[in-house]
């Protein structure tokens, strides 16, 4: 097992390297100049040149590339062009915010997905199944940002139930601990719902298929023949095996944990990775964009790895080669 993991990790290294190289060249060859930020207002044009020199944008591309590789090897992401602070600090600020949002969304996704899928599989062919299938499809087809806007308008503005933006209320830092967490929870409801709901529809369909496959198996028939009540057959025997493919979703969702919330973060002004990325892209903040790509690429690779391992752990039929 350990050997398998080590092998997979080593195999992932050139993958990340290739990913970073492609990103670097794509970004550097794009039009646009970060120093132009300084060209607005009554500024001496010479200043822009000096800024460019300070950023190291004067070197030829290959030289920049080699310098950058060296920096990456030492774990040095550099300083943000537009925020004037280490990229690591920016990520350190944003990552926890995104994680709390996406982890909860993932939980909602799986909990709701399993529920819908099971309901739909158990009642296969009935109107309950048909309605859940169509509803799930409907939810899955709604553009995320549109749902988010509608919820802000309905739940937040007209019903005045929940806050519409950000993570905390103003002055939240002066609240007692419990009230502080409650405040955070209120701010989480809408974005978590939007993020988790659509993917729950997909998970539900997945779960339904998986459960239907399992129910056909012999041992389920045996369990039924034994005279076990239906809920016990499904809940105890079938579920256990039907969950296996669903669990791998957890692994495959790892990159989603960091990068899946761009649009939702933009609508709800959630101070996470998505907003950092959008801002960095629009201001040509190369170090930030590269760091974000690196981190999330890393998550993809790690996620696939984790999915494989999880699968192997849960399903004894799979041998590790």
């Amino acid at each position: 097992m350990l050997l398998y993991i080590v092998k997979r990790v080593i195999a992932a290294i050139p993958l990340i390297f290739g990913l970073l190289t492609i990103t670097f060249f794509i970004i550097r060859m794009a039009p646009g100049d970060p120093a132009s930020l300084y060209l607005q207002g009554n500024v001496d044009p010479g200043i822009a040149d000096r800024v460019r020199r300070n950023f190291g944008l004067d070197d030829p591309l290959p030289v920049q590339y080699v310098k950058w590789l060296k920096a990456m090897a030492t774990g040095e992401f550099g300083v943000s062009f537009s925020k004037h602070r280490p990229v690591v600090d920016i990520l350190a600020d944003a990552i926890p915010n995104t994680l709390i949002l996406t982890t909860l969304a993932l939980f909602l996704n799986i909990a709701l997905g399993v529920l819908i899928g099971t309901l739909s599989a158990v009642t296969r062919g009935s109107w309950v199944d048909n309605i859940t299938t169509v509803l799930a499809l409907f939810v899955y087809s709604i553009p995320e940002f549109w749902l988010a806007l509608m919820l802000i308008l309905g739940v937040s503005l007209h019903l005045d139930l929940l806050p519409a933006a950000q993570m905390h209320s103003p002055n939240a830092d002066q609240l007692p601990a419990f009230a502080y967490i409650l405040d955070l929870a209120k701010h989480l409801v809408l974005p978590v719902f939007v993020l988790g709901f659509a993917s729950a529809a997909a998970t539900g369909r997945y779960m339904r298929g998986s459960l239907l496959d399992v129910i056909k198996q012999d041992y389920i028939r045996t369990a039924r023949a034994k005279g076990l009540p239906e809920w016990k057959v499904v809940g105890k025997h079938a579920m256990r095996n039907a969950m296996i493919p669903v669990i791998t979703i957890v692994g495959l969702s790892l990159p989603f944990l960091l990068g899946g919330a761009v649009v939702v973060e933009a609508v709800f002004d959630w101070p996470g990775m998505g907003n950092v990325l959008l801002e960095a892209i629009f201001s040509r903040d190369y170090p930030v964009v590269i760091a974000l790509t690196a981190v999330s690429g890393f998550m993809v690779v790690l996620g696939n790895l984790l999915a494989d391992i999880l699968y192997a752990v849960v399903d004894p039929r799979i041998r590790l080669e």
Binding site: L153, A165, F268, D269
Partner: peptide
């Protein structure tokens, strides 16, 4: 408070 989305800000 930094709120960049106009709809949210007005809300």
């Amino acid at each position: 408070r930094v709120i960049s989305e106009p709809v949210t800000r007005l809300t």
